[in-house]
Amino acid sequence: METLGIVSYGADIPRLRITAHEIASVWGKDGATISKGLGIIEKSVPSIDQDTATISVESARAALRRCHINPQDIGAIYVGSESHPYAVKPTGTIVGEAIGATPDLMVADYEFACKAGTAAIQTCMGFVKANMIKYGLAIGADTSQAAPGDALEYSASAGGAAYIIGKKNVIASLNHTYSFTTDTPDFWRRAERKYPSHGGRFTGAPAYFKHVTTCATTLMKKAGTSPEDYDYAVFHQPNGKFPVSVAYKLGFSKEQITQGLIVPYIGNTYSGASMVGLASVLDVAKPGDKIMVTSYGSGAGSDGFDITVTDHIEQLERSNAPSIKQMVDDKQYISYGVYAKLTDLLYWE
């Protein structure tokens, strides 16, 4: 029987890091308190030559290195990001060309705050299930921006992951997906503005917690599962606190979420966040493992996935691309001054 699911995956995390402490020292805050409060030690920073397109390409190439599919069999590419390098001109075409998937394919860029990547997975699932394409490539990647001095500056980071969705040689079956969506303006960036704005504490209860909780609960109801059925759970991770607290609230344990909780070490990679978390789980997953993923995108919505790892994961050449742990550990620290240069804060006419 054919299974709909993940055929391969790959990720890319820039190696530059800035610590919460370093940022705090610039703004006269106490780094230890902030770091503890947010659950973030440090965050990744894109180098001057890295952006959502390069992270998407490197993630997609990592996914292709691990499996043996012909890129020409990829029938669709969707790239979810809130930091596409162009406002008008797709990132997906760059990816398509760079992995050799052009020209017979569908491509579009997605934006839904931090859940555009999981929305791309859902789109690919639909096309594959309908037999319209053999493989779909879903990417979530960001080089997220934060206004200098804003609370988001401690978390907004860079990274992404790519998933090849198909029916053949599936390493993890996507059993169920469910989305919960409302119009809740908790976080936004107006057209032509450089930095996002947010509703402060309004981003919590009525936004993140309501959507993630409802989505996860409904998903488990549809799948007929309960928290103890899962080996791993990944929740969207805008900081180190929210996903932990939502997990406990839903009845998940620390053991279930630790492997997929990457935000303390690299910050919030936005569209990449839950997808990088899932990649970290897949790095160590064994046949039969059950995984739940619940993303969250401001504005607002959550995409939930009930996933079962298959025997085929043993055949996936996982070591052909670096693991999330390897990328988390391969790092170089920069000062706030260098960070300011790299993130264009020092630009003047």
């Binding site: 001057i48 030559d49 397109a53 390069t54 390098p85 630009y347």
Partner: peptide
């Protein structure tokens, strides 16, 4: 090899990878 941005045609022009 790795895929990177090589140049930008200023602040308004195309991005070259």
């Amino acid at each position: 090899s790795t895929f990177r941005q090589i140049q930008q045609d200023g602040y308004t022009g195309a991005l070259y990878y």
